[in-house]
Design a protein around this nucleic acid. Structure first.
Length: 579
DNA sequence: GCCGTTTTCGGCCCGACTGTTTTCAGTCG
């Protein structure tokens, strides 16, 4: 039996949830499947091995029944209940439930009454006006279904934008609205405010002395392509880049409630409300209703919202229902790392490999950011990168770095490399050459489709190597483009802790690798984290903010991250210095 | 199906909108 990834288990739970929903199960049972899928997907360890050990129930949302289903999936490749339900509901029905306006109930009605079992059959039924006699379907419904079929909805997943592309729109947009005379307060909300990996749309919350004027001002911005609606309550527009923006305008005394609500996450808000209900309070975007008095408290700030619920303020990056509510109630939230805590960057490229700037230019740019140290880590020799650095070239590069380091004031330059980890686990510079360097990052850049076992051994070999200081971009994922390679992160973390090998959070907004769940697991296990830009040019140091965002989402403090240290302290943390 | 400061049963977040309805179910965020 092939090894089962968390992604595969989560997909099986999502499918079974969809099938039960079509089957008419009570919604809470369906929600349990969706929650379980999310818990599995975000688990930093292999849920399959947890289930084998009878420990999967340690995950919140996984009970005995779900654990048994995971074990069945491992042993037989399927879940019996799913097999049964698949016979009753054709796969095309799921696609129909994905159409806007059609959910499981109405899709089921179409299937039972008309035999509609696919998007094509649905189109034919609408065109022959066979929906008319059905209760709940009228001419509007027909038109909406046709429109949805035209746009291809239901056939493909909606486009998601990596965070840097979303913020490139959101930040100028928020600033422009703040500058408008009709505006009072304007804040970015939604998943972009939580600094997630990728976003579907943008949410902006404002207060205004002239709401309609502000709503119209949004539609008039250069980056807006079209306006869907604009009025007293706000506006919905589409940008030229295809990103939808929702502006909501609040009464000043409810701004905190609205901002909190639309910052989410959904899971955070649901858990927040469950906790509130136990105290006789009902939280919504309009305020906090007290059962006892039937009075609704309105909050002008988010701080008030959390305060009235007996909690410390929770930073947006933590709002994922991963324990932040309990920590806030107990006053045990971490003091999260900030971008200004970084004192160095340990992963950068120059013209020697695939970078765009020289050693000197990179050093000056790093110094201008206030960094005390920078490692120059060009790619190593093999595996088809353009402009790889041969062993001879690396020796010359070491000399150049040392020379610039001697002549340049105010920054410590490290002669380093980003050395490839070959498929068999060896590195592609020999040990004697690596020993001349001040800093070595080892990364996987080839043969991504290895089995999880082989990939894990490959990376463990690099971790066990005495000259390797850190592992670069642990899973190789590219956000919204490809999943990471399959690796047993739990074993990697254990080995990293034992050997003193640092684990990188690569800050490139297309990578953010380690992911926030992996980074949190690594830090909790006691691994040293290093946040690196992987800059290929002087303008790329600014991506550090995305590495910091991932670190904050992983609950990291400045202490958890090695390159918040002064150079003298960082130098002593390197594996080579620890003997 | 999960879960427990309502603890092994009985709940499970909240509100808006839509199209259809004659008081509301389903869908969505």
């Amino acid at each position: 039996m092939a090894w089962l990834t968390n992604t595969q288990i989560a997909a099986a739970f999502d499918e079974l949830g969809d099938l039960y929903e079509l089957d008419g199960a009570i919604i809470h049972r369906v929600v349990a499947y969706r929650n379980a899928a999310k818990a599995v997907r975000e688990a930093p360890v292999s849920v399959a091995s947890l289930a084998e050990a009878g420990r999967a129930t340690e995950l919140s949302g996984i009970g005995r029944t779900f654990e048994e289903k995971i074990v069945a999936l491992i042993r037989t490749g399927d879940i019996p209940a799913a097999r049964k339900l698949r016979d009753r509901f054709p796969p095309g029905l799921i696609a129909i439930t994905r159409l806007p306006g059609l959910g499981p109930k109405r899709a089921r009605q179409l299937y039972d009454d008309l035999g509609v079992d696919s998007l094509e059959a649905l189109r034919a039924a609408v065109e022959h006006q066979r929906l008319r006699p059905l209760r709940g379907f009228g001419p509007k419904a027909e038109a909406n279904i046709l429109a949805a079929l035209e746009t291809g909805a239901g056939e493909r997943a909606p486009t998601r934008f990596p965070l840097d592309r979303a913020l490139a729109v959101a930040e100028p947009l928020v600033h422009a609205l703040r500058d408008h005379p009709a505006a009072d307060r304007v804040e970015l909300a939604g998943s972009a405010r939580r600094m997630v990996d990728s976003v579907k749309d943008l949410d902006v919350i404002a207060t205004a002395n002239e709401p309609v004027a502000l709503a119209r001002a949004l539609g008039a911005l250069d980056l807006v392509e079209s306006t869907q609606s604009a009025g007293e309550a706000g506006a919905r527009v589409m940008t030229h880049g295809g990103l939808r923006v929702d502006l909501r305008i609040a009464a000043p005394d409810q701004f905190g409630n609205l901002l909190q609500h639309f910052t989410g996450s959904k899971q955070h808000n649901e858990a927040l409300r469950r906790a509130a209900v136990r105290a006789g309070l009902h939280v919504s975007e309009y305020g906090i209703l007290h059962d006892a008095t039937s009075h609704t408290d309105r909050c002008a700030t988010e701080e008030e919202v959390y305060d009235r619920l007996g909690m410390a303020y929770i930073e947006p990056e933590l709002r994922e229902n991963r324990g932040e509510l309990e920590a806030a109630a107990a006053g045990r939230l971490p003091r999260l790392i900030r971008e200004s805590d970084l004192r160095g960057d340990l992963h950068s490229h120059t013209v020697a490999s695939d970078g765009r700037n020289t050693i000197e230019q990179m050093a000056v740019a790093a110094r201008e950011r206030g960094y005390q140290y920078l490692a120059i880590t060009d790619h190593s020799a093999t595996m088809g990168f353009a402009n790889d650095v041969s062993p001879k070239q690396l020796e010359r590069q070491i000399e150049r770095v040392r020379e610039v380091n001697r002549t340049m004031e105010g920054i410590e330059l490290l002669a380093g490399t980003e050395v490839n980890v070959l498929p068999d686990g060896r590195l592609d510079y020999d040990d004697a050459l690596l020993a001349q360097l001040d800093w070595v990052i080892a990364s996987v850049h080839s043969s991504f489709r290895m089995s999880q076992g082989a990939m894990t051994e490959r990376i463990l070999s690099a971790i066990e190597h005495s000259q390797v200081d850190a592992i670069g971009h642990l899973t190789g994922r590219m956000i919204e483009r490809r999943p990471g390679y399959s690796v047993d992160v739990e074993r990697v973390i254990e080995a990293a802790v034992r050997t003193g090998t640092m684990l990188e959070i690569n800050a490139n907004p297309n990578r953010r690798d380690m992911s926030d769940p992996h980074a949190r697991a690594a830090a909790e296990a006691g691994a040293m984290i290093v946040i690196n830009s992987d800059a290929h040019g002087i303008e790329s140091f600014r991506v550090a903010r995305y590495g910091i965002a991932t670190a904050r989402r992983a609950w990291l403090t400045a202490d958890d991250v090695a390159n918040t240290r002064r150079w003298e302290d960082f130098a002593r943390l390197r594996k080579r210095a620890r003997g």
